[in-house]
Design a protein around this nucleic acid. Structure first.
Lengths: 193, 193
DNA sequence: CTCACTTCTTAACTTAAGTGAACGTTTAAT
DNA sequence: ATTAAACGTTCACTTAAGTTAAGAAGTGAG
C-alpha cells in the first residue's frame, strides 16, 4: 500500500527516505467494507480520503432520493467541503466496494508542510490539476445530453459501468434509472442499423 | 486597482510592504474592451485571468454552437486548462463587458513563490477553496432541473441575469434560449396563482 | 433453501426540452 | 440616420426524460 502511494507521489515530486518514513509514521491506511458510510451529510469531519483500492461514492439525499454526484476509484481522492470550509458536509461519502483508503487531515498536512515544504508544493500542484479536471468534468456534463454523457463515460471510464449499480450510475448521469435503461436500449437499437 | 487586489489577498494572508511592491512591479493589470476574445479554443497560453471589474465568459463551440459554461465576475479568476496541462485550450475566454483584469502566469508565480513562500500558501488555499466551490457548483447543476437551476441562479447571482445576454445564460443553464423564455414564463405563471 | 428485498428492464402516459419558424425589438455598423 | 444583423419571445410540433406500475432476475439474511 505504502508503495502505491509513494509511486503516485513520485510522479509529481521526488521523495527522500526521510520523507517516506515521515509519511509512514502517519499511519494513514484503513481498510473499509463495502457499503460503509464514511461521512454523512450534515456532519463535520476533518478527513480527506484517498482511494488506493476500491471505490468511493459521494451522494446527496434530496427529497428522499439519493443523487450520486461522483465516483472515486484507484488513485483518486475526495476532500469533503467541510474539511475546507468547516461547515457541515453537503453530501454523503460511502464505499461501493471493499476499499483501502488513505486518510488525510489539515493538521497532519500543516505538520508535513512545515517539516517538508515540498509537500505543500505537491498539494498545490495536485490541487491545480484537480481544478482543471473538475472544470473539464463539469463542462462535459453541461455541454452534453444524457445519451452523450453515457457514451462519454463508456469511453473514459468503461470499468465504472461494470463496477457500480445502474441506479447509481443513472443518477450520476443526471437521469432516472428507467431513462438509463431506455437510453441504452436506444443506443443498442441505433448500432444495429 | 492595486488595492482591490491587495484587499482580496489580505483576506487570506497578510502582506508586507516588500511583498506589495514586488507585486506592483509585476505590472499585471490590463483593461479590456467588451467582446474581446482573450483566448481561443485550440490555442495555448500561459495566462490566467483574475477579474477586478467586468465579466469574463468561458465557452465552447460545439457543432457550430456556443456553449457557455461559466461567467467570472469581480474577484473571480480563471486559469485555463492549457496553463496547467500545456495542451491546447478546450474553450474560449472572452469579456462580456468592458473589464479590468490581472494576468498571472506560471513563471511569474514560480518567481514569487521562491521570493515569498507565503504566496505558494496563498495559491494552495485559493486552489482548495476553488475546488470546493467547483464541486458545489457541479453538484448543484447535476442534482437540479433547468427550472431549479434558474431559480437557484436568481438567488445566488441575481446580477448575472441582468448583466448577461439571455442566450448565453440559457446555454449556461443547459437549455436553448427558447426553453429559457418558456421556463421563465412558466415560473411567472406559477407565481400568479 | 426460501422469502423478502433490491435491482433492472419494459411499457403507457405525462411533462418538459429541442426544433424550426415567425415576428417585433434592440444593437451595431456603415 | 438607415439598414442589416442579432436578440428575445411565442407558437406548433417532435423528441426525450419523468412518472407510475408491473414483472423478471439477482442477492442476502435468516
Amino acid at each position: 500500500m505504502q508503495n502505491l502511494l509513494f509511486d503516485y507521489i513520485s510522479r509529481y515530486i521526488s521523495l527522500t527516505e526521510d520523507e517516506k518514513s515521515a509519511m509512514a509514521d502517519l499511519d494513514v491506511f484503513r481498510t473499509v467494507k463495502k457499503g460503509t458510510v464514511l461521512l454523512k451529510a450534515g456532519q463535520k469531519s476533518r478527513d480527506g480520503y484517498f482511494v488506493l483500492k476500491g471505490c468511493l461514492r459521494t451522494y446527496y439525499i434530496i427529497e428522499g432520493e439519493e443523487k450520486t454526484t461522483e465516483f472515486y476509484t484507484e488513485m483518486e481522492g475526495v476532500t469533503p467541503n467541510c474539511v475546507v470550509t468547516n461547515e457541515p458536509s453537503g453530501y454523503y461519502v460511502a464505499t461501493t466496494e471493499d476499499a483501502i483508503i488513505a486518510l488525510s487531515n489539515p493538521d497532519m498536512e500543516a505538520d508535513m508542510f512545515e517539516k517538508f515544504p515540498k509537500f505543500e508544493t505537491l498539494c498545490r500542484i495536485l490541487s491545480e490539476e484537480l481544478i482543471v479536471k473538475q472544470q473539464t468534468n463539469i463542462d462535459d456534463f453541461k455541454t452534453s445530453s444524457p445519451e452523450q454523457r453515457y457514451l462519454n463515460l463508456l469511453q473514459k471510464r468503461p470499468h465504472l459501468i461494470q463496477r457500480v449499480p445502474q441506479h447509481q450510475l443513472a443518477s450520476y448521469l443526471g437521469v432516472k434509472p428507467q431513462s438509463l435503461s431506455r437510453l441504452r436500449a436506444r443506443i443498442l437499437e441505433k448500432s444495429k442499423s
